[in-house]
Computed example of a mutant assay.
Amino acid sequence: MGDVLTRDPEVPKRTSAARERILATADRLFYDEGVQAVGIQRIIAEAGVTRVTLYRHFPSKDDLVAAYLERRSAYDHAQIDGIIESHRDDPRGALSELATALTRDDFGSLRRGCPFINASAEFTGSHVARVMAREIRSWVTEQIAGLLRALDHADPRGTAEQLMMVRTGAVVSGSLDANDHLSEDFVRCWERLIDAGLPAAPR
């Protein structure tokens, strides 16, 4: 029967210890080894569940991939929403905190790079991994653009896109390069891109 289980759109998502165990196992294996390299039977064995249990919660491997990326996306949403909320009247401070949060929380934990980029690179076309990667990246970019607009930045759209490029490059660099100054290099570049388009301070 292989790794692909029959999809049944009527099977509801369920919250249970077994589901969380399956998802935590998939999260670890998919991130560490790649989505296509990890078979359903391996996840079943390491999660300590039956095939029927996995099928009940995730009717296909693509459903499990989607849940894995949803889990990662939820973390990003919570982190960014929290930063923006805590700097509600300080969009410039929020932008700086977005950079420092990445250096503080992500460079160490994302040892194999961005999970969305990694997963989407394994597939083509409209696969769920690529769709979800585009969705989260578009959402983050729009949050950055919104903060730039609040500062009357000269080019909020273009600068938000550039900041995302820098962020992506920094995460990749963190997983591949031996740059002992990665955090300071990243923050300096991030801040310069923002400052270049801000209105001049009144004299």
Score class of each variant (00 low, 15 high):
residue 152 D to R: 15
residue 149 R to K: 14
residue 165 M to P: 00
residue 144 I to F: 09
residue 164 M to Y: 04
residue 156 P to E: 07
residue 169 G to Q: 05
residue 153 H to Q: 09
residue 157 R to M: 08
residue 152 D to S: 15
residue 146 G to N: 10
residue 161 E to N: 03
residue 155 D to P: 02
residue 142 E to N: 09
residue 168 T to I: 00
residue 140 V to R: 14
residue 167 R to G: 08
residue 154 A to M: 06
residue 167 R to T: 12
residue 160 A to H: 07
residue 139 W to E: 04
residue 165 M to E: 11
residue 154 A to K: 05
residue 153 H to Y: 09
residue 168 T to K: 00
residue 156 P to S: 09
residue 151 L to F: 11
residue 158 G to V: 07
residue 158 G to W: 06
residue 139 W to G: 04
residue 166 V to G: 01
residue 139 W to A: 02
residue 167 R to N: 06
residue 158 G to N: 08
residue 168 T to D: 04
residue 149 R to M: 06
residue 163 L to Y: 05
residue 160 A to D: 02
residue 156 P to L: 06
residue 137 R to D: 08
residue 139 W to V: 03
residue 145 A to T: 06
residue 169 G to R: 08
residue 149 R to T: 11
residue 158 G to C: 10
residue 151 L to E: 11
residue 161 E to I: 11
residue 160 A to E: 00
residue 157 R to A: 14
residue 156 P to H: 06
residue 162 Q to H: 09
residue 157 R to K: 14
residue 164 M to L: 08
residue 140 V to S: 08
residue 144 I to A: 10
residue 148 L to F: 12
residue 154 A to W: 07
residue 169 G to P: 05
residue 165 M to Y: 10
residue 141 T to G: 01
residue 152 D to K: 13
residue 158 G to M: 07
residue 150 A to R: 15
residue 160 A to F: 01
residue 145 A to P: 01
residue 150 A to W: 01
residue 141 T to W: 00
residue 154 A to P: 05
residue 155 D to G: 13
residue 153 H to K: 08
residue 137 R to C: 10
residue 150 A to T: 05
residue 146 G to T: 07
residue 164 M to R: 01
residue 142 E to G: 03
residue 158 G to S: 09
residue 157 R to S: 13
residue 151 L to S: 11
residue 162 Q to K: 06
residue 157 R to G: 13
residue 147 L to I: 12
residue 142 E to P: 00
